[in-house]
Amino acid sequence: MEKFEQLHGVAAPLLRANVDTDAIIPSREMKRVSKQGLGEGLFAGWRYIGEGTREEAPAFVLNRPEYRGASIILSGPNFGCGSSREHAVWALREFGIRAIIAPGFGAIFANNCVRNGLLPLVLDASQIETIARWVEQNPAVNRVLIDLPAQRVTADGQHYAFDIEAGARQMLVEGLDAIALTQTRQPVIEAFHEARRRQRPWLY
């Protein structure tokens, strides 16, 4: 998995509450059996003018020229709520998004992010609002700096500290393969499994 340490990028404000994973990738856009090709369906309901067309809706933030190449999204509370579809994360990554800054995230979405090198970063709504107002003055120039090991966002000369679970941070910074990591604990898992089989034989 691609490591995440520092990111200095264009941030696109999508300041809505409850941006759900159906909005991030509608079900009609995720009907495939691979992880590839999902970026095109990202925010399809908002990004294109209708169903089945790829004609862009000019007002949607990611279609505006000044936000082309955005790698950060600034959003409202409960981003990524709803369906567990990891396709939402794959679509964001393929589109080029590396971090979402929001006051809160859907729990399954946040887990999925960490498994795919996408940083779910929590700041207060008022801080995000301040950053967004500054970015909007000149999006291409007023880029946002994220330093994950230092747990700090920098925008307009201001520093904003953020919290992240230690395990999630390590996974992102080191680009770890969670399965390989867990497999190093195989003997402990097997011992637990055997004990459980003895104690609760009706499960086996």
Binding site: S84, R85, E86, V89, I108, F109, N111, N112, R115, N116, A178, I179, T182, Q183, Q186, I189
Partner: peptide
């Protein structure tokens, strides 16, 4: 509920 990476993780481990 879990994402697909965790489906794979649960299958494997």
């Amino acid at each position: 509920g879990i994402g697909t990476s965790e489906v794979e993780h649960a299958l494997a481990t």
